[in-house]
Amino acid sequence: MTADRTGTTRLLILLLATAVLATVAVVSVVRAADRADERSRARPGEPQARPGTVSLLQPDRLLFRNLAWGPERDRIASVPLDAPAGARTAAGQDCLRFHASAAGTGICLRRKGGVVPGHEAVVLDARLRPVRTFPVPGTPTRARVSPSGRLVAWTVFVSGDSYASGTFSTRTAIHDTATGTLVPNLEALTVLVDGRRHRATDHNFWGVTFAADDNRFYATLATGGRTYLVEGDLRSRTVRTLRENAECPSLSPDGTRIAYKKRVPGLPADAPWRLHVLDLRTGTDTPLAERASVDDQALWYDAHTLVYALPGDFGADLWSVRADGVGRPRLLLKSATSPAVLATSSAS
């Protein structure tokens, strides 16, 4: 009798476990269907995107991650540079972070499925088709392609979720598409602070922007509670500090100015930044007319204008402001982020 009761108990436990798993599976499917249905519904007042062909070789286009609700949300979309509020054409490529060069190379940081979900960096060709994929150890936050399309860079958070928290850790990589070389972590490079070699366990890099020579780059270095604008040299595998209190640099098309965000005393701890432009030849530092705290790596829309993301009703909107400190910001594109300018003067 004991053996019979034991067998019956085991059978009941097995049946109960099977029922629980089946219930969980049904709930997951229903929730996934609800999310898919919600994604497929456009919301009033939002721009609409239609599926179509998007190419990096189409001139005078603005590409971006589309945040307008509907079936094309999170996909890379394209609009004319001179009519950004016009009809959006969306490619079949979902990205969390994106950038591209008019030379025909793109970089897409996206989620990956599988038994253990995660993220990956995907190098794209001119038709936005995957060329090479790299696993990344954290949450995507920054991506850049050099003007020639040869170099791509990406940054992920390894822990923490905000630059303002002071508790984050990053990994920044640079890949050479011509040689196949990968620098998986800029922390492996030699760091020179004020001309002297600096060794520390808390080096964190983010926000790469490339010069036109496919060797020099600029980025942010955080160490010892300070942030620095650094200039890197891939051939010599060194980075040197240029100035303090500079984050998320973006090099101008002519290579003479850097847009960046600067912590300003007196601003709230959760919104501490103001956009500035540094003239590399004269050292002149110009605060821009945008008064909002910009937690983004601004992009040069042209030689005189910057574009950047600010929080919006459906995630983020793209705004623009003059790079000389005058004028006022203007809304460029609703429900969009991660822009890439495809023009002959495109910047990195």
Rank of each mutant, 00 (worst) to 15 (best):
I13F: 11
T139P: 00
V123E: 11
Y218E: 09
V193K: 13
R5Y: 15
W206D: 14
T8G: 12
A126R: 12
A143T: 06
D317W: 12
E290C: 09
A316F: 09
T9H: 09
L280A: 02
D313G: 10
R73I: 06
A269D: 15
A211V: 04
A90K: 07
D254M: 02
P135V: 08
S165T: 12
P287F: 05
E46G: 11
V27A: 15
L81C: 04
S146G: 07
G166P: 01
R127K: 14
T89G: 10
R330P: 08
R41N: 09
V79C: 02
L280S: 03
A212N: 02
L299C: 13
G138I: 10
A153S: 15
G86Q: 10
L342N: 00
S252H: 03
A347F: 00
G283Q: 08
W300V: 08
T172M: 06
T23K: 00
E120T: 04
L192T: 09
G180V: 04
D161M: 00
D285S: 13
A90Q: 04
T344L: 09
S348P: 03
T23A: 15
P135E: 12
A3E: 15
A36I: 12
L299Q: 14
A200E: 00
V24M: 07
T286W: 06
R150P: 11
V27C: 13
R197Y: 06
R142E: 13
D202M: 03
D279C: 00
T9D: 06
G315H: 03
A36D: 14
L280E: 01
D279A: 02
T181C: 00
R75G: 02
T8V: 13
L109S: 02
Y218D: 02
A103V: 04
G283V: 05
L124C: 06
G225D: 03
V29K: 10
T23P: 01
E46H: 03
I76S: 08
S345A: 12
A85I: 07
R31A: 14
R50Y: 12
Y260P: 01
R50Q: 12
S236N: 11
I174W: 07
K334L: 10
A269W: 02
L12K: 13
S348Q: 03
A83K: 09
N245K: 08
S169R: 15
T201H: 14
R88I: 10
A33T: 14
S293K: 05
A90S: 13
L332H: 07
A164D: 12
S346C: 10
R257H: 11
V264K: 02
V79M: 02
F64K: 00
G207Y: 07
V20E: 04
H304V: 08
T8N: 13
A17R: 10
L96G: 00
R197E: 15
A17Y: 05
G118T: 11
L251N: 01
A347L: 01
T181L: 11
L189T: 12
P51K: 08
P71H: 08
G325C: 03
R97W: 07
R150W: 08
V183L: 12
